[in-house]
Design a binder for these strands. Structure first.
Lengths: 344, 344
DNA sequence: CTCGCACATGTGAGCGCTCTCCAACAATCC
DNA sequence: GGATTGTTGGAGAGCGCTCACATGTGCGAG
């Protein structure tokens, strides 16, 4: 036991605060103060410490800091279908907005939607000691789970929320759908068909609701509703069914990808867009301007949504009880896939 | 100061190992053993501990564990343009493959590509104590940065790599481009035009290279090259220029989104696809089957790529010096946007 | 009946940081 | 000139875990 206490330890440990302190000729506490921008350090001391930090390539150990402070500076986010336009935009926006607010954002994607998968995702985030969780899964089950889950940290919902709901940010899907449907009805169409998203997705349900209400408000009966699954392929199938019904002169499709399929099916069936049939999409993906014809669609400001979600998070974190933000309003982009109802 | 030492401390701390140990009537070490599946625990003790864990809702503190072990079980990933199909698929695949291999994956997206932004991203990952980093930015600068950066942890490249490169997984872009170009040349076209991606992206450069070589191999001169930026909009601009040149009968477009733009421009110029002009894309995004006409394109197995990248990471982590995997081969999907060269 | 050896469990140090206290010293006041 | 500030610095505990070790059993062998 005497003598050589194992010094030559193969892999060199990274420098610690003590090493920096020793090199700068101060105590570890002073180094800590410098790192945390405390004003209680003389300028030349601060510089000496900084020099030591650079020389050693010191980097503060986040785990130790977290252990001591119990604050991770990290927000978790759970998302599904990250390959889809909306979810991926929201994830990017939350990450960006979080960063602006001084938080790191960890995104965990759920592949198969199930209660277990969601719980799992939340568990993984909890393991990372996140201070709050943003759930951006606009699925009914997710909504329920979030509300039932009683976590010691704030959980905010992004997307698929109801107006006035606390701890929830969103874009008014019902309003967006009404915008789209009203545009068609205003153009003289007697009714509008709808290609919907999967019904267990709250957004799909809300868009459907808006479409229905737009008709109701005018005392009209809505056209046929054909279910899809967000994919272009399902839109194509729906489009083929719609093309057979010659009384349909206008279609509101729940997202742009499906609208692409609808457009193709209509085209193949020899029905002209917008001459015979008008089509409106939802999402304004960058490609939709280059469809044939370029697609009238509803645009949502995802970046703003991300910012609102983070704003809620920050407010909740700073003690506010059940912070609320208003739903954002989507915008209709009129392009060339819509026109007046055909005469007759 | 006597008496009531602040016991009613508002926010209750989450239970620690010691709490579990006390409840189960064992020492904290035994709890640790149970948590780490040590065989040195009697069955009934193990059950008692488990019961205590459940009762208390105990969850192991990852920061403390990391501090003690110096192993985070986390892999970092830096990605850019997560809204694009390829990058987003790769991110998902790496996350999934990492999870299978027992690692958590942290993705940090870079918005503006710059050396500083990349360094920043790496810094953020380092702060999370990742054990390795996967860089999935197929940009020349990223490639350089990664090779110059000398980190104490393994860094593997995914996408935009050269054959035989160590610590790098990829899909052979040159081969993919040759596949596409040869398909057109085989169909009798005398030369093929190319709408390329931004030239500082290695993938764009490699696809361009494959297109060039395919001509070379037959002693042909390549058609005009028009630069794009991956967006449908830039593809549209390129398509308009190409449509003016009546000698062009075939176009290889560096990705599907730009191909959509090309298709539209060609259509507007009255040039029939594939009657007058054949078009091939790259990526096989789910929508490309529903373009007008449905797009012949090159498909890449991103999931496999993710798995290979993680495989490299794991091998490097387990001490292998400079592990290598082979480039994967992409596949040509022939659909209806390509046909024989027009007579004349 | 002691020894030894497997197994099962407990003890204590230390990971790198932040926090709460306390010490040293200069400048200021009555 | 001694008490009173304010400024700058240091010492030490403790966050919750894992590690290396010490300890306490039971049981067959010498």
């Amino acid at each position: 036991m005497a003598g050589g206490s194992g010094s030559g330890n193969g892999r060199r440990r990274s420098p610690s605060m003590a090493d920096v302190a020793a090199l700068a000729g101060v105590s570890h506490q002073t180094v800590s103060r410098v790192l945390n921008d405390s004003p209680l350090v003389r300028e030349d001391t601060r510089e000496r410490v900084h020099a030591a930090i650079v020389e050693l390539g010191y980097r503060r150990n986040a785990a130790a800091r977290l252990l001591a402070t119990n604050r991770s500076g990290r927000i978790g986010m759970v998302s599904a279908h990250l390959a889809l336009h909306g979810p991926s935009m929201i994830a990017g926006a939350v990450q960006e907005a979080g960063r602006e607010a001084g938080y790191d954002v960890s995104v965990v994607g759920v592949l198969q939607l199930s209660e277990e998968a969601l719980r799992n995702a939340v568990d993984r985030l909890l393991d990372q000691a996140v201070e709050a969780i943003v759930v951006a899964v606009a699925h009914r089950d997710a909504h329920h789970l979030v509300r039932s889950l009683s976590l010691p940290i704030p959980v905010v919902l992004a997307q698929g929320v109801e107006p006035g709901e606390a701890m929830a940010a969103g874009i008014d899907q019902v309003a967006g759908a009404r915008l789209a449907t009203d545009h068609l009805l205003d153009a003289g169409h007697r009714s509008v068909a709808h290609v919907s998203g999967p019904t267990d997705w709250t957004e799909a349900a809300q868009r459907c609701e808006g479409w229905r209400r737009a008709h109701e408000a005018r005392g009209l009966l809505p056209g046929p509703e054909v279910p899809g699954d967000w994919s272009a392929s399902s839109g194509y199938d729906a489009g083929r069914r719609i093309a057979q019904d010659l009384s349909v002169t206008a279609v509101f499709v729940a997202n742009d990808a499906m609208a692409l399929g609808v457009l193709k099916a209509l085209h193949e069936a020899g029905r002209d867009v917008p001459g015979d049939v008008s089509v409106v999409g939802f999402d304004d993906i960058p490609e939709s301007d280059f469809y044939f014809p370029s697609l009238t669609t509803v645009a949502q400001d995802f970046l703003d949504l991300g910012r609102r979600a983070v704003e809620l998070t920050v407010r909740a974190l700073s003690g506010e009880e059940r912070p609320t933000v208003e739903l954002a309003e989507p915008v209709l982009l009129v392009r060339s896939s819509t026109g007046p109802a055909p005469a007759g």
